[in-house]
């Protein structure tokens, strides 16, 4: 699969250790109240019907980023390499991108009065390094696909899995490995059918 730059997350490998969150905070020197990456546990109560997963999430660097469309000043830019970059010097702190992003990616820095967001560690990419969160992942659950790079065939668009609807047609670049094994695949298919019968955001 070839696409713009973005993250790959192997659900079977992520143990929710939080190293990616910490690495992101340290690399970007984020103040206490701001975090560009978060971990969402799925089925933390360990219901025996389904497995427990950990979703390590940051900005999805969407193909059609609603944050950039909404921004009145042009502070948000979708670069040709796929990175959605925030130019802080153009930001007026109106927080409209925060309202426009369905995935909760932009974070407001109340001290600086501007928005902040994941930039895929653009300075590190320039030096040929991986983003800090990817480099810190001890299980290689979190990976990085460069612009035009190939993702392993086991990965699929996140929005093809339940839990990652794309209500605004933003086409997030995040790719996930679906649950492996016959039983898990059957459970996933069942879940898909049940959820498809419900009212969807556009419904």
């Amino acid at each position: 699969m070839t696409s713009g730059a973005g993250f790959l997350l192997d659900l079977a490998r992520c143990v929710g250790c939080g190293a990616c969150v910490l690495a992101c905070r340290m690399e970007n020197q984020l103040p206490g109240a701001i975090s560009w990456r978060r971990i969402l546990p799925l089925n933390p109560a360990r219901s025996p019907i389904g497995p427990t997963y950990h979703l390590s999430l940051a900005c999805h660097h969407c193909e059609a980023p609603p944050c950039a469309d909404a921004c009145p000043t042009g502070a948000l830019e979708k670069r040709p390499d796929g990175v959605v970059l925030l130019h802080a010097q153009r930001c007026i702190g109106c927080r409209f991108c925060e309202m426009a992003c369905p995935f909760g990616a932009p974070a407001y820095d109340a001290v600086a009065g501007v928005m902040t967001k994941c930039h895929l560690c653009a300075p590190r990419l320039k030096e040929g390094l991986e983003p800090a969160c990817v480099a810190a992942c001890p299980t290689r659950a979190l990976r990085f696909a460069a612009d035009g790079g190939e993702a392993p065939p086991s990965f699929m668009a996140a929005t093809d899995l339940p839990g990652f609807a794309d209500p605004g047609g933003a086409r997030p670049s995040l790719r996930l490995s679906p649950p492996a094994g016959a039983l898990r695949e059957a459970a996933l298919e069942g879940l898909r059918k049940i959820l498809a019968g419900e009212r969807e955001p556009h419904g």
Binding site: G74, C94, A110
Partner: peptide, 25 residues
């Protein structure tokens, strides 16, 4: 009062063709 950087407020007119917020301003 809602802007983090109120003195940059006029920049909100930069994207009249694309941003609904620019059009509102």
């Amino acid at each position: 009062g809602h802007l983090g950087r109120p003195f940059r407020g006029p920049l909100a007119l930069r994207r009249l063709g694309r941003s609904p917020l620019s059009r509102e301003v």
